[in-house]
């Protein structure tokens, strides 16, 4: 297979089995240079496994995977020298200072001396950790540790930055700060690959994303395309007693594209919201709460991963 230069990752029939368990089941996708590409899926979907294969951590069971135009099975070292990896759990050296964490990590890439010092300082400034350079990594807050982990992954000027659940467990402020930094990196044309189960994160950061479940791809596209294709423009959220759901759906069926039952609430995707609202007002149902809002990835996610889907 001839590698396409503008493709940073090319996966063909990619498969990973652990014993009899199919973690990644024969999937195909490409990641383009300069984009932010997201893997979205519930826990156990296979997204971390896929990303671990991209990082040359897990060997493939079958299929082909090229990263930066090189085959992961043959050029592991070369690929890893141009990759930045941000793991799900912080794995900083807790006994070392912030600066030492970067310098020691730089050495793994044979990157040393004044140049490494300068790069480390530049990264600390970028991630607003300059004042903490002599603090022990174990004494940093969760948000700072995360930023340091991302800074460390950038020490070798990677062409591709892979982030596994980059904001997992952070408070909202720390999360926003990480998002802001990732957007700035994207503006510098670094290709970003991230896994997440935060739909807001996927929506804010990703140019394209892939929704996975059970090791398979459910859909791949831009967030906007996916929302339009699977849900439409808007969603009407309703709270009604469960026993009234079926009769209500019966009544409005011809005015909606589809519906989603989330247990205590019901989401309808209206063909035309005004008509639907009028129809609802004329029905005798006990509508305790209703909200008309733009459709989002969460709706797509629930629909594709099959939770309470009715159509």
């Amino acid at each position: 297979m001839v590698s396409n230069k503008s493709m940073v990752v090319e996966a063909t029939k990619l498969t990973k089995k652990y014993g009899n368990f199919m973690a990644v089941d024969n999937i195909n996708f490409d990641i383009r240079a300069g984009e932010c590409f997201g893997f979205l899926g519930p826990n156990g979907a296979g997204k971390t496994t896929t990303v671990k294969m991209i990082q040359c951590f897990s060997p493939l069971t079958s299929g082909t995977l090229n990263v930066l135009g090189m085959n992961v099975q043959h050029e592991e070292r070369k690929i890893k020298s141009r990759l930045g990896v941000v793991p799900q759990e912080d794995n900083l050296d807790p006994e070392l200072t912030v600066m030492q964490n970067l310098i020691i990590y730089a050495a793994y890439f044979d990157f040393k001396g004044i140049k490494a010092q300068r790069k480390a300082k530049e990264l600390l400034d970028f991630f607003e950790l300059g004042e903490k350079r002599d603090a022990l990594a174990s004494n940093l807050s969760g948000g700072m540790k995360r930023r340091l982990t991302i800074a460390r992954a950038l020490i070798n000027n990677p062409a591709l930055l892979v982030l596994d659940e980059p904001t997992n467990g952070l408070d909202p402020r720390a999360r926003h700060m990480v998002w802001q930094k990732l957007r700035e990196l994207k503006n510098r044309n670094i290709t970003l690959v991230l896994t997440t189960h935060y739909l807001e994160e996927a929506h804010r950061l990703c140019d394209r994303l892939l929704i996975m479940a059970g090791g398979k791809i459910l859909d791949l596209g831009t967030p906007k395309e996916m929302v339009n294709k699977h849900i439409g423009d808007e969603v009407l959220e309703l709270n009604i007693p469960p026993e009234q759901m079926s009769p209500l759906l019966e009544k409005v069926r011809k005015h909606i594209h589809g519906s989603l039952n989330l247990g205590t609430s019901l989401c309808l995707s209206p063909k035309d919201s005004k008509t639907l609202m009028t129809v609802l007002q004329e029905t005798p149902f006990d509508l305790q709460y209703q909200l008309l809002r733009p459709a989002n990835l969460e709706d797509v996610f629930f629909k594709l991963t099959g939770r309470g889907l009715e159509q």
Partner: peptide
């Protein structure tokens, strides 16, 4: 500390 994991994400195997 997952130090091994951190190191093997680099060219060190």
């Amino acid at each position: 500390q997952k130090t091994y994991h951190a190191i093997i994400a680099t060219p060190v195997n």
